[in-house]
Write a protein that binds this DNA or RNA. Structure first.
Length: 856
DNA sequence: GTACACTACATACC
DNA sequence: ACTGGTATGTAGTGTAC
């Protein structure tokens, strides 16, 4: 039998002691197929230098006979091979040890401790990654698979019973080109729709009576897919006019009640069964939720159990499994369970400006859509008229989740393809894991053996190492500047790593010939050295940068979202490469390489700054990889000339780019002292758009009033150049504040609870409020944004802010602390802006201007 | 009882 | 614990006077 197949979900199973991969995917004609395959399992034994071939052969022979007794099975060495390999750039002789089961690799490796042995490696790689690397059967690409049909077969303990259209044992598998995924460039022109794969996504969301997993009942479940919307419940009879009590009215009245999407069941158990059958009927490749790893899926499993229902979502009838890491992760066999929250946190949060990563905030920013308003209530407290809204709310959550899934689909897909790991992993892995997986799936191109993961002891050692000196930040002179130009280095740290060859494999303890030294600490003068012999790590980063360039070029000709996503995936990986080398958990950790990267970056930015100054420009600011300077009386051509000149002198692949021209820019002084504040400025671009960095406007832990006032002041100053108007505006706001006439919503302060309340040493306002919320039986989670007001204190008495902090629902309108909001919110947000214009400097807070403003 | 230095904490920039 | 260091700024805490 021969099929065209796209792998989507991977997992493995053991049969007669051996490992097999089980891949669920789609065929080119849309059928769901499962293929079973296997691959060699091995690890490496790296021999010490100067061990004779004869001795190596002897060691290999000794390894050959190793059997490790186990409870479940015996771990066996199947055979060995001696090969030339590379490890951290060095040519080595290594024994490739083939074993019967990858789970025994570690134990077998531990037995191989002969004196001729230098290292043992690659015993710590999972089976699915091994398979993908070995057979090059990469997720989300097309393959022609030839094999024996297993449908109905009892082989592998009855795998043929699994509910899929096609089930094959692989005999031959080969990648095919030209056919792709909808949106791929390579698939157009064929006109054969059959080859266009469109992800089959089903979004879901549950509503429950409580928040503790499995404790209370699930009230409803919504499902949204393509042309598919449903809410499953057992509470429809609570809706006005739907109950039997109401004169026994017919349930299926023909009248359109707007609740056609609601399906009613007898009880919770039947509703869950209904959910199972709806999911099976829809047959999704991806079941998508938001926070669903930690809530919806475990909740469903727990309630199914209570009701005696088997939550057999897996293609083989298995129940979702949960791996306990730091957080729960829910896996369904054969269907990729995605928790969009986790992917968004890793891949997007850095670029999002929303205040939280809640579905509402994220959807608001990425889709321009908001959830329906609904305050959680226990179902017993919901009036008959409210139920309709509740159903709608539940449906909307799934609708938004579905749209969000479509929105991030291209990025997910390209991440998976670029890195080579299945979507399930890619959607949850941290950035360091993504880099590491990229390495594992590309390292064979360099003939390298993969370095091991650090053990706890080693992690501890690394963490205790001293921090190293990082980026340079230029101290700005406070002021309002006209015609500001910004240059920045493209992927600066990545290009430094490549240009100077900085990685674990090129690091040298001492100076040697053909090495370059660099001072990594300006204080102690500590110096480290790197060989000029190109290491695979920097070579890999270089290729990522090159591939990204190619993709960008292609994108300029054909703007497909997948090309954009691919370029983005490379960008994120390159940008994370520097942090990765400085990360204590990394296989290729190298503090010296990270420190040297920062050191060379400092050197290059200093040089660029001085080059710009030498040409007579006034530099006003610089942070890490960017430089701001005044255009002065020069034109844009002069500026590009300057850019070109600097670029011609840059080493390796380093590149300085024009970030933009800005009409105006403002830098302010620190609250304490006269010096200019770093990481805080506002710009007005050529199209009158504002770019604000660091100011309270962009900080979520300041009340909205202060943020809005500051934003308007910046706008008036930058757009109109009119600080007087801004002053009048601020006076107006203060007047309103003093009259207790400010909208209460604008006074809420939000602070994130970053740990459990009992773990705090200092009890800040938000911690005190969180404690009070817990006392009142409210749900308080670590990571939550705690909202509070600062209320009037007891007369005359000076008190701590936390004593005046109030929960949102214990706050009376207008009972806010005028002094606090004036002196600790509004004035601090605007005073250093006015100071730039010489308007009442220090006196602003202390009374002079405040008094003046009060009079207004 | 207050002023001050110091620490803890949150959040931003790149 | 799940990439890094640099930086600002608030509020709490402890101590000296």
């Amino acid at each position: 039998m021969k099929i065209e197949f796209m792998p989507i979900d991977y997992d493995y199973f053991d049969f007669q002691g051996r490992n097999y991969v089980r891949i669920v995917g789609r065929t080119s004609d849309g059928k769901r197929a499962l293929i079973v395959d296997s691959c060699d399992v091995y690890f490496w034994v790296v021999m010490k230098a100067n061990v004779s071939e004869k001795k190596i052969e002897k060691v290999a022979e000794k390894i050959d006979g190793i059997v490790v007794k186990g409870k479940v099975r015996d771990g066996k060495v199947l055979r060995t091979e001696v090969l030339d390999k590379k490890f951290l750039g060095e040519s080595v002789r290594a024994v490739k040890v083939y074993v019967s089961n990858f789970k025994d690799a570690h134990d077998i490796a531990s037995e191989i401790d002969f004196s001729e042995v230098e290292k043992r490696r690659e015993y710590d790689i999972g089976f699915v990654s091994r398979y993908i690397r070995e057979k090059k059967v990469r997720p989300m690409n097309w393959y022609v698979v030839e094999g024996e049909s297993l449908s109905g077969s009892v082989e592998f303990g009855g795998i043929g019973e699994i509910d899929v259209d096609i089930c094959l044992k692989v005999e031959e598998i080969e990648g095919v080109d030209r056919k792709g995924v909808k949106g791929d460039k390579k698939d157009n022109g064929e006109g054969d729709k059959g080859y266009e794969y469109e992800p089959k996504i089903l979004a879901y969301d549950i509503e429950t009576d409580g928040f503790e997993i499995g404790k209370d009942e699930i009230v409803m479940i919504s499902l949204v897919g393509r042309d598919f919307k449903k809410v499953l419940t057992w509470k429809k009879d609570k809706v006005e006019g739907k109950g039997e009590g109401k004169g026994g009215g017919k349930k299926d009245s023909k009248k359109d009640d707007g609740l056609g999407f609601v399906e009613n069941y007898k009880d919770e158990g039947e509703m869950i069964e209904g959910f199972l059958s709806e999911v099976k009927k829809y047959d999704p490749d991806f079941l998508v939720g938001y926070f669903s790893d930690g809530f919806d899926l475990p909740y469903l499993r727990a309630r199914a159990e209570v009701n005696g229902v088997k939550l057999d979502l897996g293609v083989d009838g298995s129940v979702p499994s949960f791996s306990r890491g730091r957080v729960l992760t829910g896996k369904i066999r054969g269907i990729v369970h995605l928790d969009l929250f986790r992917f968004i946190r890793v891949a997007y949060s850095q670029y999002l400006q929303s205040e939280s990563l809640s579905l509402d905030d994220v959807a608001g920013e990425l889709l321009g859509k908001k959830k329906d308003g609904w305050k959680h209530k226990h179902s017993s407290k919901i009036s008959s008229s409210e139920w309709v809204r509740y159903f709608g709310y539940n449906l909307k959550d799934s609708e938004i989740t579905y749209e969000l899934a479509l929105k991030v689909w291209a990025d997910l897909l390209e991440f998976s393809r670029v890195i080579g790991e299945p979507l399930f992993n890619v959607s949850r892995d941290s950035m360091s894991a993504q880099i590491e997986n990229y390495i594992i799936h590309h390292i064979d191109e360099y003939g390298e053996i993969v370095e091991k993961r650090p053990y706890e002891k080693e992690i501890g050692r690394r963490r205790s190492e001293e921090k190293y000196e990082g980026a340079f930040v230029y101290e700005p002179k406070p002021g309002l500047y006209e015609d500001v130009v910004f240059f920045d280095f493209t992927s600066m740290y990545g290009s430094v790593i490549v240009s100077y060859n900085l990685s674990k494999s090129s690091f040298r303890e001492k100076k040697e010939k053909n090495s370059v030294g660099v001072e990594i600490d300006s204080g102690s003068g500590e110096k480290v050295y790197f060989s000029k012999k190109v290491g695979f790590f920097s070579e890999m980063i270089k290729e990522m940068i090159e591939k990204r360039k190619e993709v960008k070029k292609e994108y300029s000709k054909d703007s497909s979202p997948l090309l954009k996503a691919r370029s983005n995936a490379f960008k994120l990986l390159v940008n994370a490469a520097y942090g990765y080398q400085g990360f204590f958990g990394a296989r290729y950790y190298c503090r010296e390489a990270a420190a040297a990267t920062a050191a060379f970056a400092r050197k290059e930015i200093h040089k660029a700054i001085s080059d710009i100054k030498k040409k007579g420009y006034e530099v006003v600011y610089s942070d890490t990889d960017s430089i701001a300077f005044l255009q002065g009386n020069r034109n844009k051509k002069d500026v590009s000339g300057l850019l070109e000149e600097i670029n011609s002198g840059l080493p390796g692949i380093m590149e300085l780019d024009l970030e933009g021209f800005f009409k105006r820019g403002i830098w302010v002084a620190k609250r304490s002292g006269k010096e200019g504040a770093k990481k805080k400025y506002a710009l007005l671009d050529e199209r009158d758009g504002m770019k604000i960095r660091g100011f309270e406007t962009v900080r979520r832990d300041w009340c909205l009033l202060a943020r809005e006032v500051q934003n308007k002041v910046l706008e008036m100053v930058l757009k109109d150049g009119d600080e007087k108007k801004a002053l009048v505006y601020v006076k107006g706001v203060i007047k309103k504040l003093k009259k207790r006439d400010v909208d209460m919503d604008k006074l809420v302060i939000k602070t994130q609870l970053k740990r459990a309340v009992e773990d705090y040493k200092a009890l800040g306002p938000h911690v005190v409020i969180a404690k009070r919320m817990i006392e009142k039986g409210m749900k308080v989670n670590v990571g939550m944004l705690i909202e509070y007001y600062i209320a009037e204190g007891v007369n005359g008495k000076r008190s701590l802010v936390r004593d005046r902090a109030r929960m949102v629902d214990e706050m009376k309108k207008g009972n806010y602390d005028i002094e606090y909001y004036l002196n600790s919110q509004i004035l601090p947000a605007v005073e250093n802006i006015f100071e730039v214009f010489g308007v009442s400097g220090r006196g602003l807070v202390d009374g002079e201007v405040q008094k003046g403003l009060g009079e207004f």
